[in-house]
Amino acid sequence: MSEKKNPSPRKRGRRSPIAIVLLVGIGLLTTGAAYGMATTATASADIDLSSPSVIDQGGRLFAANCATCHGMQAQGTQAGPSLIGVGAAAVDFQVGTGRMPMQATGPQAPQKPVQFTDAQVKALAAYVASLGPGPSIPSQSALEGGDVANGGELFRINCAMCHNVAGAGGALTEGKYAPELKNSAAVHVYEAMLTGPQNMPVFNDLNLTPSDKKDVVAYLEYLKANPSPGGLELSAIGPVSEGLFMWVLGLGAIIGLTIWITAKSN
């Protein structure tokens, strides 16, 4: 590229400075892609949560990453609750969505990039499940084929007051919030209902039966798959965003037009 009609002596024989950036970029992308493929391959493999080697691996991960707050035997400390009996579902939700390990104390542990591979998450879940009986990770068949209409009704009665009827999330008290559900995996939604993470109430199988939970998951999947019939939904959080849009853009346009109408022509 630099070898044009008038090659300057300084540039002759040297690569363009962009080339280095490009090379590094390509290198990083290839490594990342290869790593991603490798980890996906691991994730798709079935992991036996009751196998002693997996539990053992989970125990070591737990001691290294979780025991500071939850205690060496997961018995709980001043900094974190006991995990005996919370079950594999709670671990899969908290660690699988990046909420745990917690980055800093605050009103709520926010969702952040997941810190472990899927295999490691499952190993941690296996270890915690081995400490005491608790809800287990739902199988794929528990998540598919629900009734959307019934799920919608159950969602409006039990979930919509916090998570918004369109699953857009909403504010709670003192800095806490109900997260939006549009990007949540079906399995995590199911586990959240089962275990009641953080300030969310528990919806055990006697309150919302497994079939009810399947319907709620189906409703959320339906929302994800179907675009808003009204067009531009402005993140579906209701009168605040819609009002702001109309007050700023709508009124702004009206004011602009009024000024233009009354201004003298040049």
């Binding site: 159950l154 009665i157 039990n158 009641g196 528990v202 919806f203 055990n204 006697l206 309150n207």
Partner: peptide, 21 residues
């Protein structure tokens, strides 16, 4: 009873942290 099904609720159905409409 549960909203909307009308199924009666037993005290033992509720675990700690549960909320039922």
């Amino acid at each position: 009873t549960h909203d909307p099904t009308g199924v009666p609720i037993k005290a033992s159905d509720l675990t700690i942290g549960s909320s039922v409409h």
